[in-house]
Write a protein that binds this DNA or RNA. Structure first.
Lengths: 93, 93
DNA sequence: TGGGTGTGCCACCGTACGGTGACTTATGAG
DNA sequence: CTCATAAGTCACCGTACGGTGGCACACCCA
């Protein structure tokens, strides 16, 4: 699934944890964080540190993939991205 | 690419930023973080907050994907680490 | 030679992250 | 009705994240 927000990740983590039959405490131990961390993260806390998150995802058997965003265009554009257009778009903010 | 460590991500971010012709300051502005954050993150700081990271990845046009780990192929090195071993290792700190 | 730009790095500071420990509220088994 | 377990929540606290502003060095180009 594509992660667009912390809540996306939180839901995925919680679902996966339950699928694996783990409770918050077990996951916390395996990932090396506190149960509080798990609880708050699953509640959508956006300030969680990335390093700890990686440990949790690892403990859950998740892989994290990074890919250049493919513009949801009608016809799938090639891998050639229009950098200027992209820049202008962002410049607008 | 698959993210296994903060350094993986840091390298990807730095490479992408340069490809887009941005300097640290520009990326920082677009992502709404400080230049110090960009600098430290690209240097591999593992404690960066996930919320800020999402903003930076968004500013760079990156998509983040979460997938169940593909079972390590047999050809792979002895990465047959089980969770308990990982557990013990993490416990050490 | 000098100016401009990009980056590494520093000190300082307010804020809040994350850990610990405990309490409370379901929920379920016996 | 108990007892046990899981999850939500709280207070307390040390630590350090992240922002601001600045400085120095390395370039590059006129």
């Amino acid at each position: 699934m594509t992660i667009r927000s912390i809540r996306d990740l939180a839901a995925a983590v919680r679902g996966r944890r339950k699928d694996l039959g783990m409770n918050q405490g077990e996951l916390a131990d395996r990932a090396g964080v506190s149960r509080k961390w798990i609880y708050e993260f699953e509640a959508g806390k956006p300030t969680a540190e990335f390093g700890l998150l990686l440990r949790v995802l690892d403990a859950l058997g998740f892989d994290l993939e990074l890919t250049p965003r493919r513009d949801a265009g009608p016809a799938g554009r090639g891998d050639t991205v229009d950098l200027d257009a992209l820049l202008d778009e962002h410049r607008g903010r």
